[in-house]
């Protein structure tokens, strides 16, 4: 099923792997535009690696690039966008803040949708860090743990079980 992303054509099926990163970008347009900017940058880079030849993918990537260029103009003067090393720290701090919130809820035995989403979003933002270079071993571990926890707790709640 095609996913509606405002301002973009229907998501080509090849781009399913970046669907959640694009959704995270939209969710952060107002909350944290720097995070939104780098989520889109990750999506376009990853999308170009997946398929930049087929007409539907080229059309999608071109529109996404338009959005990114507009966003960069709007964020002119923001050093997290002007300097990628600052952007790297910004996105990493944001991802770890979400991770620590979800982890704290988990360790306190408070299982709910918001903490599942925080674990999952932190894993997506750790993916985004790859635009700045290879992930550190610590970030790789955090990403793996966050993704596993999000899936595990989601399944437990769905099945009426208490996560261990």
């Amino acid at each position: 099923m095609a996913t509606a992303l405002p301002g973009l054509p229907s998501l080509p099926p090849q781009f399913k792997p970046i669907q959640h990163h694009l959704r995270t970008a939209q969710e952060h347009d107002k909350r944290d535009p720097v995070v939104a900017y780098y989520c889109r940058l990750y999506s376009i880079q990853t999308g170009m690696k997946i398929d930049s030849k087929s007409p539907e993918c080229r059309k999608f990537l071109s529109k996404l690039m338009d959005q990114l260029e507009t966003l960069k103009k709007q964020l002119a003067g923001n050093e997290s966008v002007a300097q990628e090393v600052v952007g790297n720290a910004h996105v990493e701090n944001y991802a770890l803040k979400l991770f620590l919130y979800a982890d704290s809820e988990d360790r306190s035995g408070r299982f709910h949708k918001n903490m599942i989403k925080s674990f999952y979003t932190s894993s997506l933002l750790l993916d985004v860090l790859s635009v700045f270079g290879e992930l550190t071993e610590e970030n790789l571990q955090h990403r793996k743990y966050a993704r596993w926890k999000a899936t595990y707790i989601h399944n437990c709640l769905k099945n009426g079980e208490t996560p261990q």
């Binding site: 880079q45 030849k53 080229r58 990537l61 071109s62 690039m65 990114l68």
Partner: peptide, 27 residues
């Protein structure tokens, strides 16, 4: 016709790469 459309696709692909490089101040 096949090689023409391949050439067009390649040009558009290059254009995307160039726009991405400009965006990231890598040109």
């Amino acid at each position: 016709t096949g090689s023409l459309s391949a050439s067009v696709a390649s040009t558009e692909q290059d254009e995307l790469s160039q726009r991405l490089a400009r965006l990231r101040d890598q040109v």
